[in-house]
């Protein structure tokens, strides 16, 4: 589904990501962990094609196509989707109107999905205007459910969300990456940034990656990586890498 090789990314002339290599197969969901400022969001934004993240070296291959230089909207149309951590408010633009524009005119599906996510009353509200933390996440998930991307990136889906909302959001995200299907019938993939790992209570991830100081320091079982972070903190990972390098 996604192959990232030797990826180097600059923001305003400063290299933020160094030599990133990441392979996510069809039907796989991976999690991305790492301390604040390590470059996790930058990696997601670069994969999606947001401006300001300049790829100086390396490539992003998505569904067999090199998308490194493809414009943002074309990546979206080709099957990528992203959940924002802090999406902008767009005054005057109703959530329902945006959903209608991205749904391929299937308003019935919108109504059903909105109801499932408790967002029916929000369809006629300006996107993200005065939404609570949980409402923003539900709105983001709703947009992705309507969009149905093949590969979905989620930037801290559990942050700022209460327990009731996390269970709604977690269940829907599991559906987005087809965790409700048998493993051989899963075709959708995901990459999820998480600090707490709460999201893993709702879906099993196939692999975890630790990003520190703009480099992927280790790959492995996501729960094991989380346990190391919880027990020993990120410092252990940073030190570990230094030892490896020396």
């Amino acid at each position: 589904m996604l192959i990232i090789e030797n990826l180097h990314v600059e923001i305003e002339g400063k290299e933020i990501l160094h030599d990133i290599n990441l392979h996510i197969g069809e039907g796989e969901t991976h999690v991305l962990m790492g301390p604040n400022g390590s470059g996790k969001t930058t990696l997601l934004r670069t994969i999606m094609g947001f401006s300001g993240n300049k790829v100086t070296k390396g490539s992003i291959i998505f569904k067999g196509r090199d998308v490194t230089d493809l414009p943002l909207h074309e990546r979206s149309r080709y099957g990528m989707g992203i959940m924002f951590q802090r999406p902008p408010t767009i005054s005057g633009l109703k959530l329902g109107k945006l959903l209608a524009a991205t749904s391929g005119n299937n308003p019935g599906a919108i109504a059903i999905l909105a109801e499932r996510l408790g967002m029916t009353d929000f369809l006629d509200r300006d996107i993200n205007a005065n939404f609570s933390g949980g409402e923003i996440k539900r709105s983001e998930v709703l947009q992705l459910m309507v969009q149905q991307p093949d590969f979905v990136m989620l930037d801290e889906p559990e942050s700022g969300v209460d327990l009731e909302n996390i269970s709604i959001i977690g269940a829907e995200i599991a559906k987005l990456v087809e965790k409700d299907r048998h493993i051989i019938n899963r075709h959708k993939s995901g990459l999820i940034i998480t600090h707490t790992g709460y999201i893993l209570n709702y879906l099993e991830a196939d692999a975890g990656h630790m990003l520190c100081e703009g480099e992927i320091r280790c790959h492995g079982n996501p729960r094991e990586i989380l346990k190391v972070i919880k027990d020993k903190g990120y410092r252990e990972c940073i030190e570990c890498q230094k030892i490896e390098k020396s």
């Binding site: 999606m48 947001f50 401006s51 414009p71 943002l72 909207h73 979206s76 149309r77 989707g81 992203i82 924002f84 999406p87 902008p88 767009i90 005054s91 005057g92 633009l93 109703k94 109107k97 945006l98 524009a101 991205t102 300006d126 947009q143 969009q147």
Partner: peptide, 25 residues
């Protein structure tokens, strides 16, 4: 705001027009 809508599949022109229409709403 433009890129938010582009990430949902609208091209830049469509995203801009959508934001303007919302602004005038």
């Amino acid at each position: 705001e433009i890129e938010y809508l582009m990430s949902r599949g609208l091209d830049e022109e469509e995203a801009t027009a959508t934001i303007i229409r919302g602004f005038l709403d």
